[in-house]
């Protein structure tokens, strides 16, 4: 049976590459909406969008070679960590229906818009040289009224998007890291990078956004995946 996963963050990948190249060293830096936070229901229904997790092997040639088995493990671990975290906050996790949604045009467009907004935030809020004066000390991006395309079918108050990339040094690259250290060239060992966003589906606003960049951690290990997930979502306003 072919498993179909809907991806939430296609466009964000290119933006993430830029952030990694040029970005600041801050490990996590989150944003909360400048607007008023609408009242949170006692048991908020949170729609978990398919976690866009990919684990790769960083080869000697500097390539990220995706590894399906690791990715499956990483996804399971992150999903489990999410469930636990939300339960702790008395929130109800609702899972997005991944069966072939290319047919649902409005949803597909909304998810694409979210990707573009996420990429925009990564570039203009995390790269000082590209900061927008119109967003100075302001964080107010929205998906607009179209968010009802997710609110209604799922009865959800919020949607949570997670995007995580993890790469590991293959054996040949580990050899290089040693070599590189000797020559004084920084050869990275593999890194973890991601972002998460929380959308209030009642208004369409992105009320919370966080970027994660760290050089340690392994999503293949449940405990470390839990740590990475908690790190990413630690000041989630739920």
């Amino acid at each position: 049976m072919r498993e179909r996963r809907r991806r939430a963050g296609g466009h964000g990948l290119a933006a993430l590459a830029i952030v990694l190249l040029l970005g600041a060293c801050a490990q996590t830096q989150s944003f909360l909406t400048s607007g008023d936070l609408a009242e949170k229901p006692a048991n908020p229904h949170v729609l978990i969008m398919p976690t866009d997790v990919e684990l790769s092997e960083l080869t000697a040639a500097g390539l990220l070679e995706p590894n399906a088995a690791w990715t499956a493990a990483g996804r399971r671990n992150v999903d489990a960590a999410l469930d636990a975290l939300l339960a702790q906050r008395s929130a109800i996790a609702v899972r997005y229906d991944e069966t072939d949604s290319a047919a649902k045009e409005a949803e597909a467009q909304l998810l694409k818009l979210h990707s573009v907004v996420g990429g925009t935030i990564l570039v203009h809020k995390y790269l000082p040289a590209l900061a927008l004066p119109t967003k100075k000390d302001i964080f107010d991006w929205s998906l607009g009224d179209g968010a009802t395309a997710l609110r209604e079918p799922y009865g959800a108050d919020y949607a949570l998007f997670i995007y995580l990339r993890d790469s590991f040094a293959s054996d040949s690259r580990k050899a290089l890291i040693v070599v590189g250290a000797v020559l004084g060239i920084g050869v990275s060992g593999g890194h973890q990078a991601g972002f998460a966003s929380l959308v209030d589906l009642r208004s369409g606003e992105i009320i919370w956004f966080n970027r994660l960049v760290s050089a340690a951690g392994d999503l293949r290990e449940p405990e470390l995946a839990r740590e990475a997930t908690h790190n990413l979502l630690k000041d989630l306003p739920l």
């Binding site: 991806r7 296609g10 990919e54 070679e65 995706p66 399906a68 088995a69 499956a72 290319a102 597909a108």
Partner: peptide, 25 residues
């Protein structure tokens, strides 16, 4: 036939599967 998840081939398929989802829309 589909490759077993442990194989390097599965990594290629996974990448292509993601691309296919994007291609559709």
């Amino acid at each position: 036939e589909r490759p077993s998840i442990e194989s390097d081939e599965a990594g290629l398929w996974m990448q292509m599967d993601r691309f296919e989802e994007d291609l559709k829309t």
